[in-house]
Amino acid sequence: MNDAVYTQLLDLACGAFLLAAVVVLWLRQLASIVRVFALQGVALAAVAALLGTYDRRWEVLAVATGIGVLRAGLLPLLMRRALTALAPAPGHPYEEDVSEARETEPLVNVAASLLSAALLTLLAYAVARPLVELNPTPATRALPVGLAVVLIGFFTLVTRRRALAQVVGFLLLDNGITATAFLAASGVPLIVELGVSFDVLLAVLVLRILTTRMRAAFGGTGLDDMRELSDR
């Protein structure tokens, strides 16, 4: 693989990675959001694989595979199952209720969200300048993408009213960090990567369990219902 192709492919993968984050902001159907998130996992794995191939570091390839399995397979699977578990059972009086499956009205509407995403991306570029300047390679030039996804993920976390949408936001944040790690230094040491992945997996499991309990306790997963604990 020559440098130009490598750069092209890397930029393509990074572009897809960022695009997926933006699309998550755009969509309302939780099922579609989970699907796009899975696609982003694929893009992330692709980035990792490209880096590993270019540097001929086979252990990075292995890590990329692991990431692909986790982010594009396992985590979306978990969420899809949560989504089906949340859907009203057949025969339930509210069978037609689709509120659990849709992010109907985010705190910041979609148009403003997209605009914010643009601003956040610009911010990421500004902030990442010193990172790029330290070691300008094709990979580090893409670092702003990772940071932008981190910011967009955080933004999703802040503005989405559905529990699952918030989980996706958290995972976007995490994907962004992983991408940053790969782009900056071909990933962190293996043991750290393992620990991190394990923790993320557990966090998602915890959130899934809590979503179930939330539904049992509050009758839904709308986060606006959870305002009992306050100083008011």
């Binding site: 910011l151 955080f154 503005t159 009213r161 305002r227 009992e228 306050s230 100083d231």
Partner: peptide
């Protein structure tokens, strides 16, 4: 200032988001 702790998780995360930005 009780309004600062209104119970909304979005507000709470918002503090962090704005802090980060």
């Amino acid at each position: 200032s009780r309004r600062l702790a209104s119970g909304s998780v979005h507000l709470y995360l918002g503090y962090g988001f704005f802090g980060l930005v």
